[in-house]
Design a protein around this nucleic acid. Structure first.
Length: 292
DNA sequence: CATCGATGTTTAA
DNA sequence: TAAACCTCGATGC
């Protein structure tokens, strides 16, 4: 699930469902006990995503979550909660249940299943967090330090309603590329170059832009790099809207152009799609279409 | 029931 | 470059 689109979606969902009211926080699994105690009973004011990080602000404290490779939130609640929590596409799955309420009017949650690192509860429902790489309570200095290490996030365009600020993000991306000698494929996975891109968006954006993944980042013509930023922006926004990554948008059942399609013919030029290991991750590309 | 792999990152060597 | 970490579903025997 988790490239940048997942986290931005999650931030929106948490804002809708939890922001502005005191919540209850626990760690059924037991590995976030101290943090949960600090967050419990506080009012989550605002959730935001920055690349693949989720931050929930509660006054001077910030809850930081990074889902890593397979971390996930699951939401469950009564009909009110489901109606509220269904942000955007219907598949923002909110499980519903036969509701039972405590004397204080709060929904009685189901017992946690499996390893639930953190459970956050509102009156009408709750969210369970499993398998995150990071689940921590930060102060504002620590929060700033995390954010400072991240490159521009295409999904943070449009936040300030300032077209010049958005243009600066793209310029920063071009600047970051110009200063790396690694391949463009490696650069896209470096969260200091651009934040929020993962293995699927890397493969799919380079394919659609016809870029050879092994081109050195600092040799990529800005005339080619700027459309790459725009392509990633479009793809990430589609992912937020739809709740899943689907870069092939021509109706059929195929979801990706090259990701996990190694050994089959490229739908565009017929060349056999390749896969190779690059810095511990699998890289997928079409040697026929991606030549510059 | 055991093993493997996954849309990720950090640390050690 | 490799291993470690975190969890769960798919696959294989």
């Amino acid at each position: 699930m988790p490239e940048g689109h997942t986290l931005h979606r999650l931030a929106a969902q948490i804002n809708t469902v939890f922001a502005g009211h005191p919540w209850r926080v626990s760690s059924p699994q037991g590995r976030f006990i101290a943090g949960a105690q600090r967050l419990d009973g506080q009012v989550p004011q605002h959730a935001e995503a920055w690349g693949k990080h989720l931050f929930v602000h509660l006054g001077p404290e910030v809850w930081q979550v990074h889902l890593g490779l397979y971390g996930a939130f699951s939401f469950r609640g009564d009909a009110d909660f489901a109606a509220e929590a269904t942000v955007g596409a219907p598949r923002a799955a909110v499980g519903t249940l036969e509701p039972r309420y405590a004397e204080d009017g709060w929904l009685i949650p189901e017992p946690p299943k499996g390893a639930v690192r953190a459970r956050v509860s509102a009156r009408h429902g709750w969210a369970d967090l499993r398998g995150p790489t990071t689940c921590a309570v930060l102060d504002l200095t620590e929060y700033q330090a995390v954010v400072d290490r991240l490159g521009p996030d295409p999904l943070r365009q449009g936040i300030s309603q300032d077209a010049r600020a958005d243009a600066q993000l793209r310029e920063l991306f071009l600047h970051n590329l110009s200063r790396r000698r690694i391949s463009i494929a490696a650069a896209l996975m470096d969260q200091a170059v651009i934040a929020g891109v993962g293995n699927i968006y890397r493969a799919e954006s380079l394919f659609l832009e016809g870029l050879d993944p092994y081109t050195p980042s600092n040799q990529l013509d800005p005339e080619r790099a700027a459309p790459l930023w725009d392509r990633l922006t479009e793809q990430l926004r589609d992912g937020v809207a739809e709740g899943r990554i689907r870069t092939v948008r021509t109706g059929g059942s195929r979801r990706h152009w090259v990701y996990k399609h190694q050994g089959t013919a490229c739908p565009r030029c017929g060349t056999v799609i390749k896969a190779a290991e690059l810095q511990g991750r699998r890289l997928y590309w079409c040697p026929g279409c991606q030549r510059d």
